[in-house]
Write a protein that binds this DNA or RNA. Structure first.
Lengths: 340, 340
DNA sequence: CCCCTTTGTTTAATCGCTTGACTTGCAATG
DNA sequence: CATTGCAAGTCAAGCGATTAAACAAAGGGG
């Protein structure tokens, strides 16, 4: 029989349509006997309920969309892969499918992110790490079926979930200050609010421990948060402020770039210069010297983001403004400040 | 009005349900006048047809699933990102949505890849580069709504589309032989049929130009096709065959690893040893020396894979067994064989 | 002036499932 | 013994579109 329907199963079992449906939805009102009878017939025919009929009647599609930025080679960055994997994990074990969307011009101009919801294609959206200029996300204010992942917009009520960039900054600042560093250069990515938050929190923490703002000079890391940009930025930083004894990178790749610059100038790390980053990407462990950093569990972030979205679907929570703890990971690239 | 339906639009325009539907589906039998009247109402209400109602009635879902292997940090490899981006591009401009699936244990054991089709969740599937042991793909023999991307199974009728690994091998072999190399080491990934095809074609080409099989020793590259594995493999190769003057990597990462090994042993590339790879990943251009390689246009592969699948949906083609041309890219890492 | 096309629109059947309201049979209760 | 309560099912009304087939009006040819 081609494509059996619920009707075929019902007929074969001598029960009504609705009984089959109830069995399939684990309704407790069905006796164990009929239940197994039905399930056997289902297995025998390899029956799969039609997802559209189901979605139409139940007005939910058991699917979410994951939106990633339209960056060239987006997935070259482990960052997204990790989060997406986490999302996929939780989604599939909760019976949700994952749609992939890329926030390209068409997606934004046609407001496809809203169409997806209106057309019931998905029950909700997860936006991964947009940048400062993605203000179209404001369309989602008041819309519960949406969470911004690892990004947030100050002064809005948008749902978000992110790792704690401010605490990352504080832990990093304290680690360096405890090692005696009194003049610390910062390479900051400033095209995201989380990047800005990291920069500001870092400087603030330093100042609150007695350093002055001029003891914490910072330079722009660039939009791609890349190793190459870190290399450049470190050069600028050390040229303008030859007396800094430590460099803090806005992420690990910037930090690794900074170490590469140090190596190119025969500056010993950590002997003459301490360097640290944020994220704990795999490369951080294998760099030479291995990189001290603040670990962000991005896979877990993905898992949790998905979980919160589903929590919202189920009405278990009404909104989501959550921040995940981070951990300092001390490796070889940081050491006591050299005494002048 | 909450969530307008086709009925609301029809009422407002004083036309029937079907008229609106016909307009929405660009049926030419509707007059220009009614068409614009309807479209205006649609725009006014921000109406979006319910995807489930549509799918139920039209028995198609305008969505495809892209299945990637369950590899840790899968997206760390640019490889997949490129193909997926290409697929997304063509899918969205043809009005198809893209579902992301990961071929993990659950996905395979529950035969979810079949359920997706049976439940009409998607109209078709694109499997990206599975490995030798993924024989469950045989379930798709005779199933048109499926294409294996950059991978194929010999002796089956499975649809596939892939870059030309055999020609890659031939071009590489000829490039090295033209430079005078007479003893060439090969680092081969052997956990995919394409990897095996590359290895066999490379050796065959060399032999057909007068080398003997012992002039083309090969070692296993490992399952991850990684730089680290390339480093190891190069060591083994050069230890067992100190007289080789060139190394061919099964992909760029293996080749870059081999170059790293050469550097660690103060072997000059290309002065003492030529090294080349396959793929032309971005890093190939930036390695030192820059890497000679065979370019695989993976983004284009993704675009075409998606196009072929849609061709099949439309009945424009019945099957797909296609191979994409590749191009030799000569850079700095290969040179004339050193004369003994 | 009648019949036949053509063009534009409507009618109505369907797609396959969910779900609140209703039935039935039977054991327990007062 | 009539009544109540409950467990296990069934009924039937949607859900919101698509799409043959039917139909009405307008034009065209003889």
């Amino acid at each position: 029989m081609a494509k059996p329907t619920i009707k075929d199963i019902a007929k074969e079992c001598n029960v009504s349509l609705s009984t089959v449906s109830l069995v399939l939805n684990n309704n407790p009102r069905i006796s164990e006997k009929t239940r197994t009878k039905v399930l056997e017939a289902v297995a025998r025919h390899g029956y799969q309920p039609n997802v559209h009929a189901r979605g139409l009647a139940s007005r939910s599609s058991q699917a979410i969309s994951v939106v990633v930025p339209n960056v060239n080679h987006i997935f070259a960055d482990i960052y997204f892969g990790e989060i997406v994997s986490g999302i996929y994990e939780r989604a599939s074990d909760q019976g949700y499918k994952v749609l992939l969307d890329i926030a390209n011009k068409q997606f934004i101009q046609t407001k496809e992110y809203l169409s997806l919801l209106k057309s019931k294609r998905v029950d909700g959206l997860l936006f991964i790490a947009a940048s400062l200029k993605d203000d179209y996300l404001k369309d989602f204010v008041g819309e519960p079926c949406f969470i911004s992942v690892n990004h947030y917009f100050p002064d809005t009520e948008l749902n978000y979930i992110a790792v704690d960039y401010e605490d990352s900054a504080r832990q990093a600042a304290n680690h360096l200050m405890e090692l005696g560093h009194k003049k610390i250069g910062l390479i900051a990515g400033t095209n995201t609010y989380t990047g800005l938050a990291l920069r500001d929190a870092f400087i603030k923490e330093c100042v609150s421990h007695g350093l002055s703002e001029s003891d914490v000079p910072w330079v722009e890391g660039g939009d791609r948060w890349s190793q190459e940009e870190g290399y450049e930025a470190a050069g600028k930083l050390l040229k303008d402020h030859p007396d800094i004894t430590a460099v803090m990178g806005g992420n690990d790749r910037l930090a690794i770039g900074a170490m590469a610059y140090a190596a190119s100038q025969d500056i010993d790390v950590p002997g003459q210069l301490s360097v640290m980053g944020v994220d704990d990407i795999p490369a951080a462990r294998f760099s030479n010297p291995s990189l001290t950093t603040v670990q962000h569990r991005l896979y877990d972030l993905g898992v949790l983001a998905c979980e919160r979205l589903i929590n919202i679907f189920k009405g278990e929570i009404g909104q989501c403004h959550e921040v995940l703890p981070v951990d300092l990971v001390v490796r070889e690239s940081t050491g006591p400040a050299k005494t002048a």
